[in-house]
Every structure is written in structure tokens, then in C-alpha cells.
Design a protein around this nucleic acid. Structure first.
Lengths: 284, 284
DNA sequence: CAGGTTAATAGATATGACTTTTTCCTGCCG
DNA sequence: CGGCAGGAAAAAGTCATATCTATTAACCTG
């Protein structure tokens, strides 16, 4: 059958609330969602009829239908009687659904999406920092502090993976500390995309070969946010966050000018084949 | 059976992309989603076992399961084998899913949500206005202009329903004109909640009995946004939008001080009974 | 009483029959 | 010749039932 084994959620991603990958239909959801998000199934295209999918994946109607319902619930496809499934234009997708955002490979397919993401970050995160300065509890502060300390330590050690993980958690912590449910949701939804942006940043930092950059430029800027939140200074926190994001945008823009798309180096060029060995259907 | 008839989408809500209310499972989704959103089924509570739901609604397993999958996809419930369905805490809901936001009755149950919404608007909408000033097409401008003209006309006539509909479409048009897919999505997601906020505003305007307010205060402020976008002035558009939202917040805060929760006047107090007449299950 | 084994339960999946909606074709009428 | 109406077919929607599987809880042994 054409379905991968069940995989546990990757470590260190507790802030993510992805649709469970368990059961046949759950794996199917992520399989098809990923295909759509990567553009292997183009918007406007019709999905194969159920009987065909049924044969390709080797699962029952029930599972196929449940998976389709989930994808429809997230706006990726449209289901109509007689016509069958059809992939909706990206504008109709629930882009703020963590699953959908995780399925999209924004930088490989659509460089413009990253600029749009930056714009949203610039709108949202300073406001979240402001909220955190107003309403953070001691526990919130402690959580953010821990991530900041981790950032400082790992930046010195050169453990980039740990550094960016802590960076991500730092930003997530501020969203949580804002105690605004919409902002928290929004932060969570954006995390997968932010993760990709950080990957890109890391890639460029590696090329640049300047290990002091993270420790002596990025860390102090984040420290300023933490301090402003600690002294309950909304304007200061907002401004400090704005600086961090503008810096990230500038660095990426600076990096982008040089060299081709870095994704092509370390990622498989061709998508993996979906079905293990049943040439029943050529479309999927 | 306990399901309402199929209902077409209300007029004038083309910007909304709600889960279709068609078919048995679609109606079931909105039925259960509404119950959860209104708090009639509390977080942490277990859903009745499938066989019970099956008996209550008089539909088959298939439809029940598909509806449950959709709700799970939107983060409202968690499904586990043997244990069954359980309502997740609101923090886990996909609050930025238009359906979820439409199901929540934010102001009846949680006045705080409205303040949080205002904070998000204050972060998002000025940025959207800035984007619109940078990237609006003539067609975008035309669409916004039409809504603005409608606002001016209906404000004079005193047709409040039409006025607020145009106001909503005005804001939606700016989101669209920003040509930022995340902002557009975000705008769409917030529209149902914004609609409620406008309802509240209208209610207060009616009490205030000052028909000139809309025409000579609200409209000019919106006109300033339109003009700034037209002359491609990002800073001006951002500032004008900020003024509109801050004004709305202030007016609502001003209104809130007086009188009790206005929702209690014109809404049915008790929720409608779900099942037509089968006393099989007392929990639903 | 602890720990592991087993049996029962309820959801998950499979399957095939039946229903409903939509599309498309055909033929009639203007 | 074009358009509309009616009917046939196709594919999704729904249903009923059966089997599979994971989880819980009872139970049994040491």
C-alpha cells in the first residue's frame, strides 16, 4: 500500500497542534495534504475518483472519505456530488491552519510568500510583545528567560539546530505570554512557516561563517525584548521586537542577493513515489 | 431526526468561506460545532458514544464519523479509540478558522475575547492598509470606493444594516487589496467576529439616537483611509486605519460603561432543543 | 498487594448495497 | 438552427453490517 508508517511527532514541537498522523485516514490526510501543499496536485485539478484512490492506497472507502473531509475542512479541496474532489485555489486554503502551513513548501514554490509572511510578522509580533509586557506572568517570564539562556549558550557552542529551536520557542513564549488567544493561535499557526524561515537563515549563517553573529548581534536584540517585557514596558517591547524582525528581514534580503536558491543543495529533487508498486493509476 | 433543513448561505457574505452546510454530515458539523462554540458542550467533556449519537440524530455511522473528523480537523474535539470523542480546551481550537469563529458567540460568553480581537485588529488592519497603499490595483480601489459610497449613502438614509454591511465589505476590500495572502486569510477569518462587533456598535448607535454620527464622524475617517490608499501613501493609510480602529474601541468602551449586556434584549435566552422528539439520550 | 495476562468494549476499518444529486445526452419545440 | 425539457447514467453520498484493533479494566497468579 502507498502509505508511510505512523510517525510520532518530532521532538521539541509541543507548541504545534497538528492533525494526528495516526490511523489510516490520518496518514492519508498528511500524504495528500503534503502533495497539494507542494504543488504536485495543482489547484483546479480534479482528484481521481474514489474508486481509483481506493485502489491506489489500498484502503477502504471509509478512510478515503474521512481523509477527504479533513482536507475539505481545511479548505484545500472542494467535494461535490458527481463531480468529485477538486483542488481549490490557494487563496481559499485556510492558510492559518497549522497543518496547511506545514504542508506548504513556501520558499521552494513561492518566494513571495516569505515576504508576505514577514509583513505579517511585523504586524503581529510587536503587538504580541506589547501584550506580553502588559500581561506576562512570572511563569511566562521564566519560560522566555529559559529559552533566551539556551540561545546564548548554544550560540557560543555553535549548536545551530538547538539555537534556532530555542529562538522559535522564545517567540512562541512571547505569543503565549501575550495572553491573547487570537495572537497565541496566530503565533502557533505561523510557527511552521517561521521554522522554514529560520532554516533559511541558518543556511546562510553557515555559509557566512561568522559564528559571533548569533551571539553578539542576534542575542542582544532578543535580550532587549525580554528586558522590556520584564520591566513591563509595552512601547519598549514593541520597538525591540520590531528591530529583531526588521533585522531578520534585512539579513535575509541581504543573503538572497547572493547565490541561487539554497534549497536545491540538500533536498531531494524529485518527490518520492506515492504508491509502492501498483501501476493502477497514473495520475497519482 | 434532529437535523435542521439545509440552508443556503446568507446573502452578502460571499467573502466567507464556511464549511458547506450540505448533506447530512455538513449539517451535523454545524449543529455540533455551534453547540460546542456556544459552550453547551463544555471543554473536557466527553461526547456521547457513537451509537448514542447515531440514535439521537437518526443518521448512519458514516455521517457521524465524517462530521467528527471535520470537527477534529478544526481542533474542537479529540478522537481516540475506545475512549471516544472529547471536547478540547478552547486554547486548542483553530480560532482563526472562519467556521470556528462563526460558531463562537464571543460576546455572550466571553467579553474578554472582544478586547483581544480589538488588539489583533489594531495589529493587522493598519498593516493591511499599508499593503493596500503599496499594491492596490485600480480594480481594488474601485471595489473599496463602491463600499465607501454605499456607506455614505446608507448613513444618510439611516439604513443601519446596509451601512454596517458596507463597512464590513470596506474592511474586507482593504484586506484583499493588500495582496498578502496571510492578511487576506486573517481578514476573512476575523470577519464573523467583526460582524458581531459591528452588531454591538449598531446596537449602541441606535440607543444613542444620533444619526449624524455615522455620516459625519465614521465616514470621513474611512474616507481618509481610501484617499491615502489612492495616493499610494502607506504611512498615511496605516495611520488613518489606526484612527478608525482606535475610535471604534473607544466608542465601544464608552458605550460599555452604560447599561447591561445588550445581547440579552433581543436574543432567545434558551438554546433550541436539538432532537425533535426522541428522548433516547438526555445528554444531547 | 504488585505485576502481568486476558477478556470485554468501543472506536477504526472494510465491504457492498442502495439513494441522491448532477451532468450530459437526446429529442422536441420554437 | 438554437435552446430548453426530460431522462439516463455516473459518481459521490448514505446506510447497514461485519471484522479488526487498541485500550481499558477485570482477573489471576506469585
Amino acid at each position: 500500500m502507498g502509505l508511510p508508517d505512523e510517525q510520532p511527532r518530532p521532538a521539541g514541537t509541543t507548541w504545534l497542534r497538528l492533525y494526528p498522523r495516526i490511523g489510516l485516514h490520518g496518514r492519508l490526510v498528511h500524504q495528500l495534504g503534503g502533495r497539494i501543499g507542494r504543488g504536485e496536485l495543482a489547484p483546479g485539478e480534479a482528484l481521481p475518483p474514489i474508486d481509483e484512490l481506493l485502489a491506489v492506497f489500498g484502503v477502504s472507502r471509509t478512510s478515503i472519505r474521512e481523509a477527504m473531509r479533513v482536507l475539505a475542512a481545511k479548505g484545500l479541496i472542494e467535494l461535490r456530488q458527481r463531480t468529485g474532489g477538486r483542488i481549490r485555489p490557494m487563496a481559499d486554503w485556510n492558510l492559518l491552519d497549522p497543518d496547511v502551513l506545514a504542508w506548504i513548501d513556501p520558499f521552494r514554490l513561492e518566494p513571495g510568500l516569505m515576504a508576505e509572511l514577514a509583513e505579517v510578522r511585523l504586524a503581529i509580533e510587536p503587538q504580541a510583545a506589547r501584550g506580553a509586557a502588559l500581561r506576562a506572568t512570572p511563569a511566562d517570564l521564566e519560560a522566555i528567560q529559559v529559552q533566551f539562556s539556551t540561545m546564548e549558550a548554544t550560540a557560543l557552542e555553535g549548536d545551530l539546530a538547538a539555537f534556532y529551536a530555542a529562538d522559535l520557542a522564545f517567540h512562541a513564549g512571547i505569543f503565549d505570554a501575550s495572553h491573547n488567544r487570537f495572537l497565541t493561535q496566530l503565533g502557533r499557526a505561523l510557527m511552521p512557516a517561521l521554522d522554514r524561515a529560520f532554516d533559511l537563515h541558518r543556511h546562510h549563517v553557515l555559509r557566512r561563517e561568522d559564528p559571533t553573529h548569533l551571539r553578539w548581534r542576534i542575542c542582544p536584540m532578543h535580550g532587549a525584548i525580554l528586558e522590556a517585557i520584564r520591566r513591563q514596558d509595552p512601547a519598549g517591547a514593541e520597538q525591540a521586537m520590531r528591530l529583531v524582525i526588521e533585522n531578520a528581514i534585512n539579513e535575509l534580503a541581504y543573503f538572497e542577493e547572493r547565490g541561487p536558491n539554497p534549497w536545491n543543495d540538500d533536498r531531494p529533487a524529485a518527490p518520492l513515489p506515492l504508491s509502492a508498486g501498483r501501476p493502477t493509476c497514473t495520475r497519482l
